[in-house]
Design a protein around this nucleic acid. Sequence first.
DNA 1: GACGCCTGTTGATCTGAATCAACCCTGCCC
DNA 2: GGGCAGGGTTGATTCAGATCAACAGGCGTC
Lengths: 233, 233
Amino acid sequence: MRATSGVKITSPLLAAAGPETRAALLSRASMLAVPRGATIIAQDQPAERLLILLQGSVGLSTAEDGGAATMVEIVAAGDALSIAAALLQVPHSVSAVALAPCRLLAIPAEDLRAAMAADAGLMRAAMEQMTRQWRLLMEQVVDLKTRDATQRAARFLLHRLPAQRGAVEIPEPRGAIAARLGMTPESLSRALHGLEAAGLLRLHGRRVDVPDRAALQRISLPRAGASQGARRV
Amino acid sequence: MRATSGVKITSPLLAAAGPETRAALLSRASMLAVPRGATIIAQDQPAERLLILLQGSVGLSTAEDGGAATMVEIVAAGDALSIAAALLQVPHSVSAVALAPCRLLAIPAEDLRAAMAADAGLMRAAMEQMTRQWRLLMEQVVDLKTRDATQRAARFLLHRLPAQRGAVEIPEPRGAIAARLGMTPESLSRALHGLEAAGLLRLHGRRVDVPDRAALQRISLPRAGASQGARRV
DNA sequence: GACGCCTGTTGATCTGAATCAACCCTGCCC
DNA sequence: GGGCAGGGTTGATTCAGATCAACAGGCGTC
């Protein structure tokens, strides 16, 4: 399936819908392209449409009353940005900003809700998507509690690495990645260059070569005697 | 509504169901009581029933392949323990252990799925519950990234504090709380006693008195110039 | 094509929290 | 009632990573 702009639409969510449901959704959907740095979703705004990221990279952050904001997650192409808010008709609980030029598909929230009521597969896919995002967050919490900066950086790259070996393109600015990983840009830089010095990867600007995926994986395992939270209850 | 054992059943999930749905679910549900330390859910086991925590406290932890385990969340009475797994018929992605003596309601997963298909209110409540747990995790990620040990401890207490002021009973062992907060028991102890020394709370074993909730809240705000993740992208 | 800003890197220093270790207290079991 | 074990506290030391600061390279702009 292709949309007007010629970008392939690959989304687990839409793939799960029946053909006619999908067609109905797409017929009323619109495509949008945003440059790096653009705000895609503003926190606390009503969710009028579901956004599916087709291309690019988006950072999710939350600002609390206190004024603290952090990059909570970086979502990759294929994921939906606001399922929960669109489904439940509640305001967005996060802001989303483009960390790279993005293409998104926008589906009116009411269309989505109607389609979901009619199509059980779509409903299930939506719940799977929500569950997946929950699990990612859980993984991040574990990372923050049990792994040091270098291990977190290594794991981030591993997550991005497409096949068993090779190179990754990292389009996001380092500062955004550092924030996602819970460290300063300085620390990320040191971690990355430390891994390079250890021969585990090669840095070429925003491209990273990983000669031996298994070796990197070994590094990213939490130290055996890890303390935090690993202690007996 | 009351169950056989005389424990009041208060759960947003069941409250959202229609009367007849609720009656049907309860008729086939069973009650179980477990002592502190008992394992309630084992990771990777199939989810045959939905567990609703009526009383007590349960710690959720994940063990990865690497062998790292951490307390990811502590769930309070009223919450469901395994909605996603029960709905999607997938194995539990977390383990759950009782941090205090617990009473739980167990509803066969297939009953739940049937009820949900028939009762839109219940379905919505399930999604709200999942969203809520997602948001809690997001909050925890922000905490870990932007707040120091003392602030996290203060916030934990604030979350537990029922009304505007007063005292909280903390039934969980300190080690479990420390793990949930991403610090060692030693650090938690120091944080708590530091707050006590500052006159913000009074420690009496597992009871904590908070004379001035607002003051504690002020402490728990992230420092203005917080760095991690707060930098410009 | 040169300038200037922004992103990323590197170095020096400082600090919050982990680690290691001893000790105390409380509840339990015999 | 006494001893024992485990959870909790306190102290001394160490270390990872934040902070502060300076600088380099790249890219868009004029």
